[in-house]
Amino acid sequence: MNTSALVVMLTTLSLVTGLMLYFFYRVLNTPPKPEPDSFLGNDDDLTRQNVAH
C-alpha cells in the first residue's frame, strides 16, 4: 500500500475501533443505577410543555 493510504487507513481504523471499545467498556463497567424509590423516582418536573406552570 502507498504511505498516505496506509496512514489514513490505520489512523481511521484505530480511532474508530478504539472509541467503540472504550465506550462499550464504559457501558459494561458502569454500575447500574438503583431502582427508583417512591420519593426519588418521582421528583421530576413532569409537566407537559403546553401546560402553564
Binding site: 481511521t12 472509541l19 465506550f23
Partner: peptide
C-alpha cells in the same frame, strides 16, 4: 429507557459501534 437512566453514554456506544461496522 427509564427516566433516570443514562442516554449520553448509551448513544455514544451504539453510535460508535455502528461506525466500527461501517468503516472497519
Amino acid at each position: 429507557v427509564r427516566g433516570k437512566d443514562d442516554i449520553a453514554l448509551n448513544a455514544m456506544s451504539a453510535g460508535w459501534m455502528n461506525e466500527f461496522v461501517e468503516v472497519v
